[in-house]
């Protein structure tokens, strides 16, 4: 039996559909079967479809039908927000910054959290620890200045400077 679609190759895929008692038979060759849309009913649903669904749900309120995110684009790789919506994939690590505001609610929906508390890479990690230390010292400095403890403030200022240099030299 020849393929119903191309009429050239031998059919290898036989598909019987019974809908409301009406029977319909389709015979296809391998090639045409791959492109045959009706077979996609179950298989086309992937994690990325879910993501897109989540994103669409998030556009609620009066702006729902306004495509105001159209121009949002990653500065580095050029991926647009709409492209991300279609594939569920980012183009580069910078996308996380470029789409940050849209992303946080999405992450909360997927993971029920929005901050990482697990492993930190050793090299980048030391920088992060220093940054946290700097923030702490800056707070102390502010307090010292308020209390007019200038000697202590000078000490703290030097320490902050030193730590900042450490980060920059890396």
């Amino acid at each position: 039996m020849l393929c119903d679609e191309c009429g050239k190759n031998k059919s290898t895929v036989h598909y019987t559909k019974i809908l409301n008692g009406k029977k319909e038979e389709i015979h296809l060759c391998d090639e045409c079967a791959k492109d045959y849309k009706q077979f996609d009913i179950d298989s086309s649903f992937s994690i990325h479809n879910f993501l897109t669904g989540l994103l669409d749900n998030m556009q609620e309120g009066p702006f729902k039908n306004v495509n105001y995110v159209h121009e949002l684009k990653c500065n580095r790789c050029g991926l647009t927000y709409n492209q991300f919506r279609e594939t569920g994939k980012f183009g580069c690590s910078e996308c996380y910054k470029s789409f940050h505001d849209k992303l946080i609610p999405l992450l909360k929906r997927i993971h029920r959290h929005d901050s990482h508390i697990g492993k930190v890479p050793k090299r980048a990690g030391s920088k992060i620890r220093i940054k946290k230390e700097i923030t702490k010292l800056k707070n102390k400095l502010e307090i010292a200045v308020k209390k007019e403890e200038y000697e202590k403030a000078a000490e703290l200022r030097d320490k902050i400077k030193e730590l900042k240099n450490q980060i920059d030299s890396d």
Binding site: H48, L51, G88, F90, Y96, G118, A124
Partner: peptide, 21 residues
């Protein structure tokens, strides 16, 4: 190798379902 890592979000991945750890 210098990993793509964000202080708040952790290891950055192509699909947001893998981000963090």
């Amino acid at each position: 190798i210098k990993y793509a890592f964000d202080e708040k979000l952790g290891y950055l991945t192509c699909c947001p379902t893998n981000i963090g750890t």
